[in-house]
Design a protein around this nucleic acid. Structure first.
Lengths: 198, 198
DNA sequence: GCAAGTAATTGAACAGTGGTCAATTGCTTG
DNA sequence: CAAGCAATTGACCACTGTTCAATTACTTGC
């Protein structure tokens, strides 16, 4: 006792992603229901399951887009009229870009780095690995010479990342805006860079 | 068409907390249902609502206990045959204690520092503030002299905390055990302390 | 000793969730 | 034009947190 829509109004993967993106960005993962997305699209919730296996898969498609955005933000920050001489400043800018990205796309960040729902962890997220690899490369390049990079695992990039991660995580939770914490972020990052520049 | 239990078998707040604690510790906040807790207690789910307003209030009661544990862990670490001479080592031990606490009580930590459910954020958590104040005090005391503590907001303790927070957050998410990451934690903390000891 | 009142418990009911699936339909191809 | 396919529907299931009238055990006043 159901029907099929006319070809013009048929549901596309892209349309679903777009509606879902705006909803997830407003309310976060759990607060958005498949029925909610469907009603925004003007279709039934069952239809979405034809295009995506479940809510998690739908969401993870958006997450991968998020990592692409982050990579772009990092490259942009790195190439800002780089004082190539001072790679540490470049690193600082990259770290700021990371914080900024997290604060300006909190719900993206949340799922990219902060989701423990098994239903989401099922899906692998290659974008995350790529993103971190790039960051580590930038750190290594900035530290080169000042620090014994070889000899055992070089965990400095990882420590820096986790320290930024803690910052972003906390301020996302408290719902603050990027503008409110730029100063604190700069102080935080300067302290971190200080620890590797001596 | 219901009944009341005999006085001997009546439900106490403590019993509920105990059952809930073990369940939450195993499965986390969302994966535990009120009906699940009730069935473990051998009562109906409605009965719990007589003792706690809602699921969030029940959980937050456990969180406050968590902060008490954390404070105790910090004090213990600080008083471990302290080389009072070297307060930086004491700080390192306190930071390790923090990481250890997080890793050994991941679900406690999760709700103490990682919950964004509005339903839980409604309840204020005084324990968190107290805990951080104590930590900041220890940092200030360790840094005294080496660093311009006065003059503007002294954000170093906050930066250190966020950097630890990022570490714990990440490894809780990946479900690792404390033993697996002690080494990494030590490296991380040494890097952080390095940034304030120069 | 008994009646009234209170405190605690129950389970049905409600509105919501994610997910499944037979039935139905529009479109496409032979 | 008939057969088949692809897309959509909405009833349905099992579950969630929460509410609340009804019921009962215990306590208190007389």
């Amino acid at each position: 006792m159901a029907a099929r829509k006319a070809a013009e109004q048929e549901l596309s993967r892209e349309q679903i992603l777009e509606a879902a993106r705006s909803l997830f960005a407003q309310k976060g993962y759990r607060a958005v229901s498949m029925r909610g997305i469907a009603s925004q699209l003007g279709c039934s919730h069952g239809a979405i399951y034809y295009h995506f296996r479940d809510k998690a898969e739908l969401f993870c498609a958006l997450v991968e887009q998020g990592f692409q955005m982050l990579r772009a933000a990092i490259e942009t920050a790195l190439s800002e009229k780089a004082g190539n001489a001072d790679k540490l400043r470049g690193l600082e800018r990259v770290m700021m870009a990371f914080v900024r990205f997290g604060m300006e796309h909190p719900h993206h960040y949340e799922i990219m780095f902060l989701v423990n729902d098994p239903e989401i962890m099922r899906y692998s997220q290659p974008g995350q690995v790529q993103c971190y690899e790039r960051f580590a490369e930038i750190v290594r390049s900035a530290v080169e010479g000042r620090w014994p990079v070889s000899g055992g695992m070089f965990t400095v990039p990882w420590s820096l990342f986790l320290s930024l991660h803690g910052f972003v995580t906390h301020y996302i939770l408290t719902g603050q805006a990027y503008g409110d914490i730029v100063g604190l972020a700069e102080t935080h990052i300067r302290l971190l860079v200080r620890s590797i520049s001596s």
